[in-house]
Amino acid sequence: MTATFLLEQMLNGLQFGLMLFLLAAGLTLVFGIMNMINLAHGSLYMIGAYLAATAVGYTGSFVAGVLIALAGTAAFGALLESSLLRRFYGRDHLSQVLATFALILILNDGVRMIWGPHAMLVNVPALVSGPIELLPGLHYPAYRLVVIAVGLLVALGLYLLVVHTRIGMRIRAGASNREMANALGGNISGLFTVVFALGAMLAALAGAMLGPVLAVEVGMGESIIILAFVVVVIGGIGSVRGALIGAIVVGCVDTFGRAFLTTILREFSSPTVADNLGPSLASMLIYIVMAAILFWKPRGLFPAQA
């Protein structure tokens, strides 16, 4: 184990964490402001990935493809919110879980109807397809660095939006006290649509950016949405800052667990036990962390609600 390997794993953890943040940011806002559990948020991520893969194929440009996917998914999110999901804001969490679970079924099959059952492959844009030598001996895929850069930029942009703009102020008001913001505010339903579309766009960005790294396939949203929920709950519902920190914690814990846990266990026990236990413990690790955090801080690390 060397310093370069450690650094590489840190970059991997950061990259994974930032992509989780893109998903979790929308989830936490919808959760915090509309008090809505949206299990189908992962479907928006999937739709973003499919739109990007298709648009990149048509235009031949990765950037144009991603932008089209963002616009398309945001529009779809706004439509979904204003036509359907808004009916469920006043309902209990159970109805929301059922409705959005049904939506997952619908959107999965919808995607299958349009794009067929096979996974789509997206090529890494040629400009950043090779590795870059960050340090002597540390070669890191350039595309993953782009993903990290995009993630950091969006995090910064979201911070500026939430903290320094008028709409950000309304978002924060909604997250910290929904009823009061509702009572005082003017166009609250317009705000809901904007927030939902923004969340959809961020999810689509994650899907589009991860397209070349993972396979674009039906069901890709479901494996990651649970992790995004973990992030939201760890960070504190409604808190964008909490989502960022939670996402990076989850990304790093997961990556480090997979990279180092078996090696560490070998120090304490026999190799066979370590080789068996290591991977299973590594996959369980974030859930153990989450259960521990919820046990001691049921409202998460950075509760937004007053």
Binding site: A99, F101, A102, L103, I104, L105, I106, D109
Partner: peptide, 11 residues
């Protein structure tokens, strides 16, 4: 595409 119709009915 039975999941599509099941989901729609549930909704």
């Amino acid at each position: 595409y039975w999941q599509f119709w099941l989901g729609s009915l549930l909704l």
